[in-house]
Write a protein that binds this DNA or RNA. Structure first.
Length: 435
RNA sequence: GUGGAUGUAGCUCAGUCGGUUAGAGCACCGGAUUGUGGUUCCGGGGGUCGAGGGUUCAAAUCCCUUCAUCCACCCCA
């Protein structure tokens, strides 16, 4: 059987890399300016890290989608299905609650879920994650949303659709779930199977049901937003006020529901049309109490993640085209065996400044220039017996066809001059792709 | 877990009322051009027709099974 990538995984080939690089560079720049520092945590953790964070009502659904395995020492480990739990584990382990507050951290990398594959859903996928830890100010909720919007905007998606809601404080949720149970109890037999299950475990999620019958039953009921306590209501209003003040357009979602029950108060999502059925680019919310639940100090936090593949998908749809791959400045063509060694040594020196490639076997000029042309190099440098006798190289501009014989000592300067010119090219290229 | 569509060369795809040796474009290699690339022209290599089984004188083509990919449902941290 021919080997292939595992279902739900894929290779990011050299031609794809510039787009990824661009998105990650943009992320680092935007978040860095906001005082968010990068943190890298392991891609697997003790299973408890994720099991504790996930919560009881969700674990039935969610745990079976986690890649959990036993290593040779008998440890139970889980490939991270998301970033938050691992980052919080690091926060606790390194005593970050003593750092100047708030502690702002971002990460990027792969995550793993054993899901069925479709557009925008993979088993190994990649996320950018951001956490703002140690403050309960509504300003931090708003900042989190702003950072998500600003990052996507800077990457080339200025018009994402922001949905903001609040799931309230724990007591609000309890009250609301009680209300739902009471209101829906008479209709229990009319609910869909999953919703009947949810009625016991987490009634709020019934609001999420796509079943038409379920939707009809809940249509007339109050939404979570309608039953927020004073504290959560005030907090939510402050978040919205900040967003308005900053000119961030949003839509209030009266029944925003998230699959995990660690969310408190603010929850939000960003959506984009045209990336298939999975329209969510990312989302997040506030999770006060989660750090304590994981065994740390009772420090509040708010965070989000977006899916890199989905954002790139959206960017393609926006006509933000593939970014051109890096090309060498010069390709050194060895015309005889001795030149191969000479040029390899020369290339090594030139590489201190430029991207330079060279032939590894003797080539005739025709083949050598074709090699140079295919590499995408702007310049070809030829060296053979004639050049050696004169102590020179032949420098050829592959676009104009101009060529000149050049003393070896003059080559570095000549390359520097051309490098200046081709940087202008790449600047133009960058300008067109950043529209 | 469920449903639909699709699997033919490295890539994109033609080819199925069953019938010679399975084709094209692009890509790759060589030559025209043994010290000058791109364009052009000529030639060449490359295929378990996803896999297994069945029907048939004969299967890429028909039947069954299976796997994979894509899309969607379910679910979604």
């Amino acid at each position: 059987m021919r080997l292939s990538a595992v279902k739900g995984t894929f290779d990011i080939l050299p031609d794809d890399q510039p787009r990824w690089r661009h998105l990650l560079d943009t992320t680092a720049r935007v978040l860095g300016r906001a005082g968010v520092d990068e943190i890298t945590t392991p891609i697997f953790e003790h299973r408890e890290v994720f099991e504790k964070s996930v919560g009881e009502s969700a674990d039935l659904v969610v745990q079976k989608e986690m890649y959990t395995f036993q290593d040779r020492g008998g440890r139970w480990l889980t490939l991270r299905p998301e970033f938050t739990a691992g980052v919080l584990r690091a926060f606790i382990e390194h005593g970050m609650h003593t750092w100047p507050s708030p502690v702002k951290l971002w990460s990027a990398g792969p995550a793993f879920r054993a899901e069925n594959v479709q557009r925008g859903r993979f088993r190994q996928f990649h996320q950018v994650n951001c956490e703002l830890l140690g403050g309960d100010s509504a300003l931090l909720d708003a900042e989190a949303i702003a950072l998500l919007v600003d990052t996507l905007s800077a990457a080339g998606l200025p018009g994402v659709h922001v949905k903001v809601g609040s799931v309230g404080d724990p007591e609000d949720r309890e009250r609301y779930n009680g209300y739902l149970r009471e209101a829906l109890a008479p209709f229990e037999r009319e609910l869909s199977d999953t919703s009947r299950e949810r009625l016991r475990l987490n009634p709020m999620r019934i609001l999420d049901s796509k079943d038409a019958g379920d939707q009809a039953l809940v249509a007339e009921l109050l939404r979570p937003l309608d039953m927020l306590g004073n504290a959560a209501r005030g907090h939510f209003d402050e978040v919205l006020a900040a967003l308005e003040r900053w000119g961030i357009t949003y839509e209030v979602e009266s029944a925003i529901v998230r699959g995990l029950d660690y969310y408190r108060r603010t929850a939000f999502e960003v959506h984009h049309a045209g990336i298939g059925a999975q329209s969510a680019l990312g989302g997040g919310g506030r999770y006060d109490g989660l750090i304590a639940k994981l065994g740390g100090p009772d420090v509040p936090g708010v965070g989000w993640a977006f899916g890199i593949e989905r954002v790139l998908d959206a960017l393609s749809g926006e006509g933000v085209g593939p970014v051109e791959r890096r090309r060498p400045l010069a390709y050194l063509v060895a015309l005889d065996a001795e030149a191969v060694g000479e040029l390899a040594a020369l290339a090594r020196r030139l590489r201190a400044e430029h991207r330079v490639e060279h032939s590894y076997t003797p080539r005739n000029p025709g083949k050598g220039l074709r090699d140079a042309d295919r590499s995408g190099a702007r310049l070809a440098v030829l060296r053979g017996s004639r050049e050696r006798a004169a102590g020179v190289v032949m420098l050829k501009d592959l676009r104009t066809g101009d060529q000149q014989s050049l003393d070896l000592s003059e080559l570095p300067d000549a390359l520097r001059r051309s490098a200046g010119a081709s940087q202008d090219d790449s600047a133009r290229l960058a300008a067109t792709r950043d529209h």
